[in-house]
Design a protein around this nucleic acid. Structure first.
Lengths: 211, 211
DNA sequence: GTATGTGAAACCGTTCACAGCA
DNA sequence: TGCTGTGAACGGTTTCACATAC
């Protein structure tokens, strides 16, 4: 373990490893080599070893990796060894789908608050939470200990919402709106941009030199 | 314009340019320099010029780019100068949110079919479409001319659904399930993986050497 | 013998810096 | 003069190949 810069992409690969290790563990697989895991994840074995080497030595030479152990370590690296409290802003079609999304709970993510401006939806219980008015954001985010803000509002409102989240002390933002949000240093923003992905698909389907 | 390989990431940037050019056009801005556009998109100006240079010469030296013209060209490059027909598989929380998602229509994407296996939801009208049983996939995908399949089923079912989409002639897949799908050459798969993005956020919020 | 951990090489994408042109 | 278009330099990531350890 050295003091080298860890590539951002390596982190998202760790998430993929964790996911697949969990599946292997469920299936009762106890040991796995980097070659096998690489096949499953669809990447190069050396890549996996490099990625893991940023954080320590988790394998046994001549043997491979113990699935349970490696899963534990990878989850620890990612910070997934505890619950994370999410707060949703924008309880529209997408927002309410996210609140109801079963997968989140299983993975240690819990929505503890949800906000919207539409009077009609305020007070409605969806999944775990009761929808609160935007005005209560600052107070409730602190009270409920929201750590990650999930933005599911229209692109026009997204930056304003992000600013309010940051002002309320949130340092992580998952943004579903198709805009590049700005945030101060120390605030981390990840975008889930499916219109962008659709555009990429269109390009691939259109462009003559496909793949 | 040369025969050089176009980086995949350049394509997603083109989508970002298109989006921001549309906003500028709406605001009545007629000319923009790579420096200004780069500021808006949050990237390096040379990057924009390089990305565009893969496809032609769209600017005027000493002046900049005509917004309307460049928008038109970028949309043409991406293949967004026409309607695209989408078919959804999996009409759960997320799936129905996507069917109702207003933004899609505005951008030239239309859902023309939706499939689910739950008897309860079959026949229900959501947005544009009436939910059909999975068994009708092959027939309806061809009949309705679905070009891009959107997968919003559980991770366990996703690969099977992808296979059926491909068998029905679909060559583009937008996958919301947290799995790495496999497809034959000539089939393009884009993943919208928000649990992965959440994991990355957790890492950033956990890791001591933040940013 | 086998599979990890890792320096070095190869590859790819980004940024610089300036030539070219309105 | 000013901004685009682009070869060259740079920096970062991926892959190779092998020393190392079980």
């Amino acid at each position: 373990m050295k003091f080298v810069k860890i590539p951002a992409i390596a982190i998202s690969r760790l998430s993929v490893y964790a996911r697949n290790l969990a599946l292997l563990d469920q299936k009762g697989v106890e040991v796995i080599s980097s070659v096998r895991l690489a096949e499953i994840c669809g990447i190069n074995p050396a890549q996996i070893r490099k990625d893991l080497a940023y954080f320590g030595e988790f394998g046994v030479r001549g043997v491979g990796y113990y699935v349970k152990e490696l899963l534990f370590e990878v989850r620890k690296i990612l910070g997934l060894d505890r619950e994370w409290r999410l707060g949703l802003v924008g309880v529209g079609n997408l927002g309410s789908a996210l609140l109801r999304h079963a997968h989140f709970m299983q993975q240690g993510y819990t929505f503890v608050a949800a906000f919207d401006k539409k009077a009609k939806i305020i007070g409605v219980q969806i999944g775990n939470v009761k929808v609160a008015p935007i005005e209560d954001m600052n107070r409730l985010i602190r009270k409920k200990g929201v750590e990650i803000g999930v933005i599911a509002v229209s692109p026009e409102l997204a930056q304003k919402v992000a600013d309010r989240l940051v002002a309320a002390g949130v340092r992580g933002i998952l943004n579903f709106a198709p805009v590049q949000l700005q945030g101060p240093p120390g605030v981390f923003i990840e975008n889930v941009d499916f219109t962008l992905k659709l555009d990429v698909l269109c390009y691939r389907l259109t462009s003559p030199i496909s793949r």
